[in-house]
Amino acid sequence: MTDLLQIEHLDYQRNYHRILTDINLTLPAGQIVGLLGANGAGKTTLMRLIAGVAPHFRGSITVAGATAIAARKAVVSYSALLAGAPANARLEQLALFCERLYPDFAFAHFQQLATEFALDCHAKLSTLSKGNQRKFTIALTLARRSQLYLLDEPFDGIDSMTRKKILAGIIQWKPDAATMVISDHHVGDIANLLDSVVIIKDQRIVAHERADTIRETHHQSIEDYYEALYEEAQS
């Protein structure tokens, strides 16, 4: 299998606070990967670094052969797209903005997703509930035909019915060759989707294991495996 994402010796610190230390990670194409870790472990930071919105780091990040930040952005669809977006913008305007600026954005696909999530595209961003904002973000993120999807806690604030709908749809919407990295606190909810898990703890990647291996070799569920790793370190 071809490697889609390669991270080598990645160090990152900000405000005298080291957030990631010597991160090495290789992800093949066509996988769904769970990025797990406690609050503040560095999951969001790692995604921001891969997406290219935090440019100052040591080490190297390569996505689909691209190391330059602009080239990386062309192949990465990141769910934090709306951070800092004007609150008075209408959903349709934001979707059109994406259509004009991302060559891989499929507007028809977005509309299909928006309909499925029961989003009113004429509504203003500021009028949406937290859950609907998440749905809109997911619709925008998945409407791109990218090679790497980064979904940062995509189900936070989303009701269980929609969560199930999205989870079921992810396999359907994701292009076969694309890799999807999902971070979520509800490990149990996404466990069935995952091909592998990456666990971050104390600024480092402490485990990168295939989901099958966890179940068959360790005889544990992904949730138990993840919790055991954290408890192990505490004791």
């Binding site: 290219g52 919105v53 930040i69 602009a70 952005k73 800092g84 977006a85 903005f97 991302y102």
Partner: peptide, 16 residues
């Protein structure tokens, strides 16, 4: 000024 810190703009694949 705010554009420089906005994901909506900074994620667009174009050189700085």
């Amino acid at each position: 000024e705010h554009t420089w810190g906005r994901n909506l703009d900074r994620l667009v694949p174009i050189s700085e």
